[in-house]
């Protein structure tokens, strides 16, 4: 990605106006760590949005609100009761990348290997955008297609609202890669709500091994109303085969990747159940 100009707007409205004026000739720039994966036919103007006060994490009502330009490393280091986002963030790329890469950059243009969209789908997060006024979009709608399409007319992501994991709710995620810094082969995440060890509600999502991150509705259906046991998790994980189009990668067959996803799902569900049981104490 070649730049022909680099501008630093003074505020959010100015950033929106400039991006709207520039259209395809402009680009909101946060960390910029994935730009070498992108191509543009002509050089573009970078609109730096990292100095607009959008780097923060704060509890607000029933959510943790994460500013759009908050570095992944800050999310990794943040701690609060029943906070779980750090678990996946510590496994994204290397610390040099995590110090620069932002949550907004991770989700405004979703690359196939992205981990954060999978987690936000499972968490039922809400994305806050600005286009003159603020708007909230649920994760299911936000990730229904490539979010980058939404931001073509100068709209900006300002924050991500991650719901607090309440009592009896648990989160678990698993990322499988060739090594610590590698892109994911498979990423799965789940949130379970337990009531007397029965699964009252479930959100399960996957990414990396499928064309685009998505919830696994068949897996969720196989969980709800059942007891949270290893046997139920194993049975539910088998539904992953029909729930998504698993792709072979890096010399591994589609069947192998699907098996990897199923095993990862079982682990993620076990972790979510353990979280729900043990952190209620």
């Amino acid at each position: 990605m070649k730049l022909c100009e680099f501008i630093r707007p003074a505020n959010l409205a100015e950033a929106r106006d400039r991006l709207r004026e520039l259209g395809q000739r402009g680009m909101a720039l946060a960390g910029g760590t994935a730009l070498h994966f992108m191509q543009a036919p002509e050089p573009v103007t970078a609109v730096d949005i990292t100095r607009l006060g959008l780097s923060y994490i704060r509890p607000e009502g029933e959510s943790f609100v994460i500013g759009a330009t908050t570095p992944i490393a800050d999310i990794q280091r943040y701690r609060a009761p029943r906070w779980a986002m750090h678990e996946v963030c510590r496994r994204i790329s290397t610390h040099q990348i995590r110090n620069v890469s932002t949550i907004g950059g991770n989700i405004c243009r979703v690359f196939p290997w992205a981990d954060v969209p999978v987690v936000l789908l499972a968490m039922n997060a809400r994305m806050v955008t600005y286009s003159g006024k603020e708007q909230e979009i649920g994760a299911d709608d936000f990730f229904a297609s490539q979010p980058a399409q939404r931001f073509r007319d100068g709209e900006l992501l300002t924050a991500v609202k991650v719901p607090n994991l309440r009592m009896h709710h648990g989160f678990g995620s698993v990322k499988v890669g060739r090594n610590a810094a590698a892109f994911s082969l498979v990423t799965v995440a789940s949130v379970l709500e337990l009531e007397n060890n029965n699964i009252k509600a479930a959100r399960v999502a996957a990414g990396s091994a499928i064309p685009f991150p998505r919830r696994l509705l068949d897996v969720e259906a196989a969980l709800v109303g059942r007891e949270a046991t290893a046997a139920v998790f194993q049975e539910a994980a088998t539904k992953a085969k029909a729930a998504a189009n698993w792709r072979g990668r890096e010399g591994m067959s589609a069947d192998y990747i699907q098996h990897l996803a199923e095993v990862s799902l079982i682990d993620a569900l076990e972790r979510a159940a353990t979280f729900a049981r043990t952190r209620d104490a």
């Binding site: 760590t33 970078a46 290397t94 040099q96 110090n99 620069v100």
Partner: peptide, 26 residues
């Protein structure tokens, strides 16, 4: 030159970053 090998690591505001993928303007 693509933020993988770490040979270009410098510290930015006390944190390690890859200088090969940061624009100087950043």
């Amino acid at each position: 030159g693509q933020g993988t090998c770490g040979a270009c690591t410098v510290m930015l505001d006390g944190r390690a970053v890859y200088a090969c993928i940061l624009y100087a303007q950043q």
